[in-house]
Design a protein around this nucleic acid. Structure first.
Lengths: 150, 150
DNA sequence: TTGTTTGGTTATCATATGATAACAAAAGGA
DNA sequence: TCCTTTTGTTATCATATGATAACCAAACAA
């Protein structure tokens, strides 16, 4: 196979993943949470705790806008800020118990939709899928980001 | 491995893919094209030609908003509408030559970034990556959408 | 000490986006 | 024929989002 075909395939694959996630999230009831706010919550759910400037960097949004959206999330009781020992400028941010519960619900929703697709497969096929996930995540879809020190 | 771990892994994987695509598109110069407009162009690049209502369905946007954004793209010379034989209500939409050229450039950009990650791998590893893509795309990340008939 | 950088906030403005109503033309069913 | 559905358009409004300026306090470097 030509290398170019592999890149094409990678591009088509990322488009598919994006599309499936979009479809899966369609019937998700996230009342009162905007897409950007959801992105922050999802980021927090993976990497906790984190500083405001890290969110700003990783989600490619400006500090003022990050600060604004984070305040809204705080007002909704979905995340919390607390001081960082050693640097009084910084503040660590993490999901509140309510925010964590909400994201657990979201992940359970995705999980059940994935489950519907996995059900019909044999244990061998599932194992193959899992190996494929590992291969792609370690070789292709990793994020190389400077390590943080919260 | 517990089934739940597999779903967690799937969720983490989709988040990674999303993040990598986001990072890759960061230094992409798409002057004068908004995110929603880019999403339409990317959709067109994969599925061409397509009707307005199909774009509306697949991208989860209302017909009026789809119509509005499509007009803007037409004004920018990036896509074209033409009549569909057999149903005078419908209109097929496809990328214009300029739009196609632009998306080719975008894909080449993604391709070169992927290439940077693939370079160091042996042909065997690349083949394994390719198999993994196939496995996941056919078993997990497929979109089941009613077939269109443009 | 003084100046500079880092991390963050508040306010403000312009634009992008989502939602809805009202409309029209073609297709299709009875 | 008349009624309904499909496909699309235009206009309008509210909100979400991005960009920027001005500011502050803590950290840091000289």
């Amino acid at each position: 196979m030509e290398p170019n075909d592999l890149f094409r395939k990678l591009i088509a694959f990322t488009a598919s993943v994006h599309q499936v996630k979009h479809d899966f999230s369609k019937d998700l009831r996230l009342d009162d949470i905007t897409p950007v706010q959801y992105a922050i919550l999802e980021y927090l759910a993976v990497d906790q705790p984190v500083t405001l400037s890290e969110i700003s960097d990783c989600l490619h949004m400006s500090m003022p806008n990050t600060s604004r959206e984070l305040k809204k999330l705080g007002d909704k009781g979905l995340c919390e800020k607390f001081a960082v020992a050693g640097d009084r400028r910084k503040q660590a941010i993490r999901l509140s118990p309510e925010g964590q519960a909400m994201m657990d619900g979201v992940f359970a929703h995705y999980g059940s939709l994935f489950q519907a697709r996995m059900q019909r497969f044999s244990p061998e096929t599932r194992a193959e899928i899992e190996r494929s996930l590992d291969v792609l995540q370690t070789h292709v879809f990793y994020t190389d980001r400077p390590k943080r020190n919260v």
